[in-house]
Structures are given as structure tokens and as C-alpha cells.
Design a binder for these strands. Sequence first.
RNA 1: GGGCCCGUAGCUCAGUGGUUAGAGCAGGGGACUCAUAAUCCCUUGGUCGGAGGUUCGAAUCCUUCCGGGCCUACCA
Length: 681
Amino acid sequence: MTQRRILVTSALPYANGDIHLGHLVEYIQTDVWVRFQKLRGNECIYLCADDTHGTAIMMSAQRTGCSEEEWIARVQDEHERDFAGFHIEFDNYGSTNSPENYELCKKFWQAFRDSGLVKEQEVTQLFDDEQGVFLADRFVQGTCPKCGKEDQYGDSCDGCGATYNARDLIDPRSTLTGSTPSVKSADHLFIQIEQLHDFLEEWTQSGDHLQSEVANYLKGHFLHEPLLDWDISRPAPYFGFEIPDAPGNYWFVWFDAPIGYMASTQQYCEKTGDDFERWWKDPDTEVHHFIGKDITYFHTLFWPAMLKVAGFNLPTKVHIHGFLTVDGRKMSKRDGTFVRAATYLNHLDPEYLRYFYCSKLGNGVDDLDLNLEDFIAKVNSDLVGKVVNLASRTAKFISEIGLSAVYPDDGGLFESAAAVGDQIADAYENCEFNKAMRLIMELADQANPFVENSQPWVLRKDPEKQQELQDVCTVALNLFRQLVVYLSPVLPELTGKANELFDVEISNWSDSQSPITGSQISKFKHMMQRVEIKDVEAMIDETKDEAAAEETQSAANESQDSGQPLKDEPLAEECTIDDFVKVDLRVARIVAAQHVEGADRLLQLTLSLGGDETRNVFAGIKSAYEPEELIGRLVVCVANLQPRKMRFGVSEGMITAAGPGGSDVFLLAPDSGAQPGQRVH
RNA sequence: GGGCCCGUAGCUCAGUGGUUAGAGCAGGGGACUCAUAAUCCCUUGGUCGGAGGUUCGAAUCCUUCCGGGCCUACCA
């Protein structure tokens, strides 16, 4: 077989949040595919980078009070650490905010200019005057102009499904500052991608570049009509690259993001002395992109168009996968299923997830479900029970004598399993990892009965049968090793442990085709722990805790409470705890409430402190509450206040309330469960 | 409303025209004791979402309906 040259990428994670289990579907899928290609002896490199530009990054940096550069450096550290934790092995991991990327962006841009596809057009957008930024749709909220539903984003309404221009929102406000945006115009640069329509039609609909359902989707949603011009620039302020021939304007993040694949290649080449053009200009090189279905059209329309215009290799294939659900539902912070990569690693082995995802991943765009029960069952019964068990039940019998010098008769087991290798390889190649895992487990199911029938634990007691014992274990261990070769793209750590056991490196797929003999066996060490339910539960619990903490945090951040009340009524002089306990605050129930004849602001309340204890209280809350709505409510009253004689009778206490007065009066209410008469401490 | 995908055993899924529909897990029974309560043997379990049609023959092809998921919007 001739060696292929293959360049592989995963989508660039956005430098605005943590890696979570949903992201990992893609990185694990890609990493497994790359490891498989390398194992097959192909020249293959895996490239990725952080996607660092755009308004959202600016906002995050601003919120945390650091520069954008500091922010993205911090996020990138975390991303790389998470990936390493899951054994995702990049040949280079770059950043779109790199000099290499800027240089490449300029080349692409010049190509577009030269091709005459760039045009200038005025765009009218909402503008946040306080922040001095244009507001993308997702940064504007307001009332839907069609159905009147409140708090809708600037592009569409999730109530009635209407789409509209953000300027049509009723009572729009900026989600950044809460202020009312103004309308402002700016010149944007557009790429007239319609001029490449024929090329895109041809590229997407022919060959094997896309999964068939994706090709259909593009045809049905985009290619059936003229393609809209692509708005490629953003006016300052914007965190990104300034466009050289349009000062004050920046390339839109989706322009420089995919170019980041190439910038990362560039860095790889500088690092290794390789030749960049070999990877992006040589037609013999295959380029494979792995992405999620959410960013399909950037990678199947814009990106091929960009590459075409700039004269680089077009993608050989764009592999598109679905989203992750957990226990059949969308990941949710509140359910504890929005699990961050780092949180997972606090409790569970990354190889579990790698295997589980592979056992589920096909080559379609279907969503993938992480059923936690299924997860535990699969890992324990397949990996621990079937595969690792083969080694753990035989290795120690021959740790002193090693493997037989000649591979014994095994009834054709090794050979037939070797013959399945091609099928397994095809499955990996076609991204049908679920099929590959199924085929491998079928082989494991044949290996254990062999051990059972050969009864090495009986043989070892008979000095006459030591040769037979060695032969049986030689077979079992070779079958085990064969499975590990097949699984090694998925389970690098297990592969490493098998390498130690045999003291022979698994370095090529062909290692599955011939048994090893005559060598020593290292002392057996456990290779994989069983998954414990409690560990999964602990991971979910930790995720829930994170979500709760985050909610508290964001409530504190987002409320952006005004400082006015404190200014209007500054804090009182410091008091001691003794001063405080003089005031006896009690929970009370309002058992009667009525208007007071002749009083402008007062209501007369009867408070019950439980039992027979009641108080008659006049409260200045008439303009804020109706008597009827108060009856039955729990309030907090000052129970030991000196009674005061008023025009309408004696008031035997006060009820507590906040607010400046008038209609802005807000009664304090205890949480449910409190009982009248209980003291407030 | 439209597009795509899916519906097979309790669960996860093979099987895309050809004997009586399979596997793993779970359930039941037995065995073994080398192994991480792992393993092995036996076994229960299915009107292949429903209904029509094509065919000598349909889980598989066609039509239609029902149910689920994803995408999308008056446009295919």
C-alpha cells in the first residue's frame, strides 16, 4: 500500500468557555481517526488552534478586567490541558491570534481583492452608545414585534418563530449595558460568493467530499437560490485583525478562523522544518476537516470558496457529526449533565469516554447519546470483563517462563481474528467506529471461551503439563495483544500498558497480523479499573454544584444594582450586637387588615404572633397594598416596640418594609416554613 | 409548512430482497474459581412502529399513516 499524506483538523474551539463533553465527541473522533492513520503507516498530521476573535471575546475580557490577549492566553492554557487529559494529541495547537494567521489572512484577502469579489456596502445596525460598539443580534434583546413576547434576541423569536431585523424589536436594549441602543450605519465589506455558485454546486454535489445528507441539505437550503453576499468586515472596536486596505475595519471572526487551520500548519512546519506547500498546494495531499453540524455551512460553502479563490487544496472530505445528548436530553447545567472536561477528569478515566464514544459513533450526522447506565455497562463488560481480563487471567502463569518459542495451535483463532483486521480498518477509515468496536468485541467474545476450555489454572498444578500451560497463555496473551492493536487508536493508555507487559512496542497495524513468541512477560499490573456508579454520580453532583455557583455569581454580576438607594439613605452608625438584640423581630401573620377612616396612608392590621397573642398595628402602606391581599401573609414585625398612641388608636408595633415610600413599599416576608412567633436572629 | 435522520428483544444496536430475524448487556438456570463478584455453558424474550402495495419470496423496495430527533422557514 502506498503511503498517503493526510492533513486533519478539528474545529477550533472558541476561546470563550471551557471544553465540555459535547466538544469531546469531535476531538476524540478526530484523534482516533488520526491515530488510526498513523498506525497504518500514513503520513498524517493533526492540527488545531484556539479561535480567539470576535465581540464575545472582547466582552469576556472586559468583564474580567483583563486584556483580550491575557484572556485568550488563559483560556488556551485550559483548553490544551483538557485536551491532553483526554489524550488528544495534536501535532500543533495554535491560535488564530498569531502572526502566521495574520500573514495568511492577508494572502486570502489579496486573492479576493484580485478576483473582484469584494464590494462595499452600508450596513445599518444597532449601536450601544455606552460601550461604543455595534451590537450583533445576540447582544440585543427586546419584545417580539409580531407576537409581543418579551426578552427575545435580535434575530428571531422563540415564541412565534418570527424572524426580523434587530431594529424592529420593540423596546430594544443592549444585553451588555442594558441601555437603549441607537441606530448607526457603517460601511462593511462583502464577498460576492454568488459568483462562485457553479463551483460550489459542483464541489458539494459531486465526489465524496460530503456525507450525502449534508449535500442534500446544502442544495435544499442554500444552493437552490442565489447565495447572499457574505458580510466579512466589522467596524472598530473589534478584537481581531485590522484589514490592511480598510483601516478601522476588522475581518469577521469567521474569515480568519478557518485560515487558522493553515496558520497552525505553518507553525508545525516551522517547528519541524517541513514544507507548508506540501500540505496545502500538493494535490496528492488529503485534507480532512472534522466539524459539528452547527458550523456546516462555513466549512462547506465559504471555506471551499476561500480556498478556491486563494488557490489552495480543497478539502478532501468534511466529516460532520451530530451533537451530544446525555440520557436522551440536551446537556443541561441544572441536571448536572453539562459536564466540563476538567470535571470529568476529576472522577473518571478518559479512556472510558473514548471507548464509549467510539462504540456509538457512526459516519452520519445523528446525535449521539451518552446514557450513563449504558456507559458504565459498556466499559465494564467490554473493556474490563472481556479484553483486559484475558491478560489478567493468564499473564501471571508465565511471568517466569515467558511466551512459547513457537506459536502453538490455537484452532485458528489468531489467524481468523487477523483476517478481520481489514474489515476493522475499513470501519475506522470510514468513521464507522461503532462498527469497528463491534467487530473487535466479537473477537473478544471468542477469546475468553478458549481460556475457559483450556483451563490453565488446572494445567499449572500438573508438572507434566507446563508446556501446555505456556502454550495456552501464549495464545491468550497474543489474542489480547491483537485486540489491543485494534483498539490502540481508541485506547492509547491501555496500549502503553500492553507495551510494558510484552516489552514490545505496538507501532503498526500489522502488529495485529503476527503473534509474538519466545519473549519474556513483565509482572502483570492492573490495566484498567472498573467504572464505579458512585464516581459517575460524584461527577454529576460536582457539575450541579458548579452550575449553582455560577448562577449565584452571574446573578450578582448581571443584576448591576444601582448605588442610588444607598446614596439616598446612607448607612447608619455602627451598632453592637447588643444594640441589635434589643430589637425583637418576630414573624407574624396578618389575620385582619382594613382601611382606616380618615387616614391617607395607613392600614390597620391585626397581627398574630401565634396562639392568642395578637397586636394591633397601624402601617403606612395604604398606597402599596390592598387590605384583602395582605390577609394571611407572613410578615416581620418589631414586637417589642413601645406602643404609640395615634389619632386612630394605639399601634402596638411596626411591620418591616423597604422602599422610599409612596407606592414603592415592599414588605419583608420570611421564606415559607417560618411560623408566627418565631424570632428573627 | 418544508428538509434530513431514526423506529428491530427490557436496554444498546447488527442485519438493506433469499432457509425457522441476530449479538452484547440486563433477566432466569447451571458450571468454574485463573481473573478486577471477572469468565464459561444453557435459557427466557421480538405481529422487525401501523396499514396497504410490488414480488415466488419483504425487517429490507414503493405508498401512506403514526411516533421520536435534528435542521429550517412561507422557499426548495
